[in-house]
Amino acid sequence: MKKGYLGVDVGSISTKGVIIDSDNNIIAEDYLWTEGNPVVAVKQLLKNLLVKTRNKDLLVVAVGTTGSARKLVGTILNAQVIKNEITAQAIGTLELYPEVRTIFEIGGQDSKIILIENGIIVDYAMNTLCAAGTGSFLSSQAKRLGMHPEDFGKWAIRSKKPTKIAARCTVFAESDLVHKAQIGHKKEDIIAGLCRSVVLNFLNNVGKGKNIKPPIVFQGGVSKNIGVVKAFADITGEEIKVHKYGHLTGAFGVALLAKRANDEHCFDFNFVNMHFETKGIECMKCPNNCEIICVYKNNKIIDSWGNRCDNGAVLKQ
């Protein structure tokens, strides 16, 4: 029986999972929409992974979680490693491209740049108060233009003269886009312009002041959009590498971390049949009203968090 290591990355828009073997090869992967319900998404993800590994004689011995729902999912999966997505993605990418110097990452609602020297992270930045130019913006604009987000890239690379679209802010970009469409710009030019504006926005905000050096790897859901990849290459003047698992690097990285944690116990796929429930309660013991999240497994509380002080500690039964 082979040992496997599971990495789960639950983001705002999509949920990703991979299982790697002891040689760091990805033996199973899956990608689906979170749709606002991380617990259900993870259950579905594990069902799919189970189907994909059925005949492979595999025993999952370590679990790592990352992404914005890492704590919740990590608790219910009883994960060995719960890691932020920045570290996880850097670790994952370094395994795929050991010589990488710069990582661009654009996900559903976040974007980040990670700088690497000699295989270690030396600097990073993440979008702050604004999610302009991320995947969810692109997909909403795709809907506005009446197409699937997947087709966006194909349209974009057809364009010879990308339309200039205001890059600063999603709201302005959107009104500019409508304006450009109404005065008669071609659809492919507008789409290419939109891809350019995403890139400019990224480089001006997240990448501002950062020393961008090749080799550059671009990943995250948006890296599947060839229009944005082309725009990155045009604007930076460098080759942009996109891996076929570019959308899975977070999950891959955290699987690697789980493997390195050296704390192995058999993971029970029976998890998919268990009943998990989360309840949010307000503490009400002071005006801060901390929102405390309690996680129940088969109606038994397993963990809680969110309280600022001990007054709000929920008793574990």
Binding site: S68, I86, T87, N118, I121, V122, Y124, M126, L129
Partner: peptide
Amino acid sequence: LSFDAQTSEAGVLTRLEAFYDMLLMKRGH
């Protein structure tokens, strides 16, 4: 880090955690 009335604590904690990981990694080499 920028703070205003809408700042989400989770976002800040994620960045701090990553910052810490980075410093640790940087130190390790």
